[in-house]
Design a protein around this nucleic acid. Structure first.
Lengths: 211, 211
DNA sequence: GACAGAAGTTACCGCCGGTAACACACTAGC
DNA sequence: GCTAGTGTGTTACCGGCGGTAACTTCTGTC
């Protein structure tokens, strides 16, 4: 709750007061940039002090902007989650064969994994942080992904409404599958991204074919 | 390294010195029991002080036994991981149809999830703890599980050696799948455990059939 | 009985997340 | 020009954490 309530995201400085002060109020965006730099460098255990220093300010300002550490992490995650979700949604509804849609979605995911492992770990492995707030909040992303996929699967297989839970089970399972396989692949790198995409697509497509 | 080196697990008090002291040196087992009680009650954010208090001692003793928090958590996890791995191994090598083996393994997993959610979360969702030591150590369990399953899949499909990486990709993916589906199901409980077992078995079996 | 050594304690360190209280810049109204 | 108000920033603190040093028992052995 404290997350959104803290500040309604003043995306750009109000044009009525163009350059208020010299030392300048840092925009939320700038703070998030700095936070992201630190988190991607130090991992999710980055301290609020370190982030504040990176942003050239001190702790209390961070707290005024984001409420608490959970708020900051959620804001940090939200910047990327929406675009990633949109990209996956596009892949899943692309006018193409079912197999191609599956492939495209997995490929989009693995491109993120490969392109920015640190960001990926932060987003997917939950900012970890001990407080359940953070865990739940960031884990919600995975849930949304699963729910979106569930709708897609139900449509794909033309399932009646009473079979939706089954589509959900599959969807959340598949999300975890791609994530876990991506994790493993990121560590071991036994072959290229395209190969992993193909293997996972084969797996899912085989399941589809029998459904 | 500090983990195993700290104490070679004196499982039972040496019979040569049956009842050493009155206030007694707590056995490693007793300490782990207390730690488990606290962790399952308070979640993985349980403090070392709380654990020590629960065990009726003070912090430094814990540190003498386990080195640091990571060591304690690893010891805590190891108690259950071995038995769980053995149970899964048994299910995967049971003399039965391939589908039945799959079903049995998933069922064993979901029984743990259902029977002791707190323990499950601790084992699978990584004691979370910020230090990478703990994360890596507990995540290793998932890896071992995936590797064991990979061997099973390679045998199941009679794959030539050059196709083993594919079996690995599948295996780690499937492990993540069952885990994620279990997570979702644990939260939402939209149907019984048997239903989820069946849905996931169907999915995997479909993939097998097409492999 | 002296003694080595384990078991256990108190008291501390530095750091963390989080907050209170205060200082400075700027604008608006009279 | 002076005041009031507001937003930006600071310093200095709080309780609690993981972890450790130094000391005090207590116990079994020679």
């Amino acid at each position: 709750m404290a997350t959104k309530a803290a500040a309604p995201a003043p995306d750009s400085p109000p044009p009525g007061r163009p350059q208020a002060t010299r030392r300048g109020p840092r925009t939320r965006q700038e703070l998030l940039d700095a936070a992201e730099r630190v988190v991607l460098r130090d991992g999710p255990s980055a301290s609020m002090n370190a982030i504040a220093t990176e942003a050239g300010i001190t702790k209390p300002i961070l707290y005024r902007h984001f409420g608490d550490k959970a708020g900051l992490y959620v804001a940090l995650a939200d910047r990327h989650i929406e675009t990633l979700l949109a990209r996956l949604q596009e892949a899943l509804t692309r006018p193409a064969t079912r197999q191609e849609r599956t492939r495209a979605a997995i490929d989009a995911w693995l491109r993120l994994v490969e392109g920015n492992p640190a960001l990926y770990r932060f987003l997917v492995h939950r900012g970890q942080a001990e407080e359940p707030e953070v865990r739940d909040r960031v884990a919600m992303f995975q849930r949304r992904l699963g729910n979106a996929l569930a709708v897609g699967i139900a449509a794909e297989l033309d399932l009646p409404e009473d079979q939706w839970p089954r589509a959900q089970a599959w969807a959340h399972g598949i999300v975890g599958m791609v994530q876990a396989a991506g994790d493993w692949w990121l560590d071991e790198q036994p072959f290229g991204r395209e190969d992993l995409t193909r293997h996972l697509t084969d797996l899912i497509d085989g399941a589809y074919a029998r459904a």
